[in-house]
Measured scan of single mutants.
Amino acid sequence: PVYLSVKADNSMFIGNDPVTDETMITALNALTEGKKDTTIFFRADKTVDYETLMKVMDTLHQAGYLKIGLVG
């Protein structure tokens, strides 16, 4: 499974590897070998604001990742 996490300080990680807004999709493409039907499990600290969550989800959708599971 692929886990994308947003921490309380808005830092992002794919698994244990830090990513930025600019590198997130490139890292996901490498990890999933470009398979856009891969489910991305998205988790965020409860203090992360809604705007940040939606920005990340919008970026995922624009890149073609449509299977996003929200996890606690």
Rank of each mutant, 00 (worst) to 15 (best):
V56R: 04
K67R: 12
D9I: 04
I68W: 04
G69R: 15
L53T: 06
K55A: 09
K7A: 10
K55F: 08
A27E: 06
T59E: 06
R43N: 12
G72H: 11
V19K: 01
K7L: 15
T39Y: 14
V71Y: 07
T26F: 13
P1H: 13
D9A: 07
Y3D: 03
G34P: 02
M54I: 09
T26M: 14
Y65V: 01
T47R: 11
N16D: 13
Y65L: 01
F41P: 01
G34E: 05
Y3R: 04
E51W: 10
N10A: 10
L4T: 01
I25L: 11
T39E: 13
D45C: 05
E33H: 13
P1G: 08
H61P: 00
E33V: 07
G15K: 04
M54A: 11
V2Q: 03
M57W: 09
I68T: 06
K7C: 10
A27T: 15
D17F: 13
G34F: 06
F13G: 01
I68V: 14
K36D: 03
I14N: 01
F41E: 08
K7W: 12
A30F: 10
D58I: 12
Y65Q: 00
T47W: 10
N10T: 07
V19G: 01
K67S: 12
D17Y: 14
K46G: 07
S5P: 01
E22M: 11
N16C: 10
L28Q: 00
G64R: 02
Y50M: 12
V48D: 03
G15R: 03
T26K: 11
D49Q: 13
A8E: 10
I40S: 00
F41R: 05
A27D: 04
G69Q: 15
L53Q: 05
V71L: 13
K55V: 06
K55G: 07
L31I: 09
K67M: 14
A30Y: 10
P18V: 08
F41A: 04
F13L: 07
R43G: 07
D49M: 10
D17E: 12
V71A: 06
D45V: 03
D45G: 04
K7V: 08
T23L: 05
P18N: 06
T26G: 13
M12Y: 13
F13V: 06
K67P: 04
E22N: 08
A8I: 05
F41N: 07
T47G: 15
T23H: 07
L60R: 00
N29T: 08
S11M: 11
Y3K: 03
T59Q: 13
A8F: 08
M54Q: 14
K55C: 05
I25K: 02
T23D: 11
Y65M: 01
I68A: 04
N16E: 13
I14R: 00
P1D: 09
D17K: 15
V2G: 01
G69W: 13
E22T: 10
M24E: 00
D58Y: 11
Y3H: 09
G69P: 04
Y3M: 08
T23C: 06
L66N: 12
D21M: 15
D45H: 09
T47P: 06
E22L: 10
Y50W: 12
T26P: 11
T47K: 10
D58L: 11
L4A: 02
L53S: 03
T47D: 15
L70S: 08
L28C: 02
N10C: 07
L31K: 08
Y50H: 12
L66W: 13
N10H: 14
M12C: 04
M54C: 08
Y3S: 05
K35Y: 08
T59K: 14
L66K: 09
N29S: 06
V56A: 05
D58F: 08
V2Y: 04
K36L: 09
V48T: 08
V56C: 05
L66I: 13
A8W: 12
T39F: 13
N16I: 08
L60W: 01
L31T: 07
S11V: 12
I14W: 05
N16L: 09
P1T: 12
N16K: 10
K46C: 10
N10R: 10
F42M: 15
L4G: 01
V48E: 02
A63N: 12
V19R: 00
Y50C: 12
P1R: 09
Y50A: 11
V56K: 05
G34A: 05
A27H: 14
D45W: 05
D49P: 15
I25Q: 02
L4W: 02
K46A: 11
E22G: 08
Y50Q: 13
T20H: 03
L70T: 13
M57R: 07
H61C: 07
F13K: 06
V56E: 01
L60M: 03
T47A: 14
L31Q: 07
L66H: 13
T59S: 11
S11T: 14
T23A: 05
V2W: 04
A63Q: 04
A27V: 15
M54G: 06
T59W: 09
G72E: 14
F42K: 00
A8C: 07
D21G: 12
T26W: 09
V2A: 03
A8L: 06
D37W: 04
M57L: 13
D17R: 11
S5V: 14
T59M: 15
V19A: 02
E33F: 12
R43D: 10
K55W: 13
V56G: 01
E51C: 11
Y50K: 14
N29H: 12
I25M: 07
D9F: 07
K7M: 15
S5I: 15
T23G: 08
T39K: 13
I25P: 02
K35R: 15
T20M: 03
V2H: 02
I40P: 01
Y65G: 00
K35H: 11
R43S: 14
H61R: 15
A63R: 02
K67T: 12
E22W: 05
S11L: 14
L4R: 00
K35P: 02
F13R: 04
V48W: 03
N16F: 08
I68Y: 05
D37G: 08
Q62N: 13
V6G: 01
L31G: 03
L70Y: 10
T59D: 06
E51F: 10
G72V: 14
T47Y: 11
K46D: 13
G72A: 12
M54H: 09
L31P: 01
A30V: 11
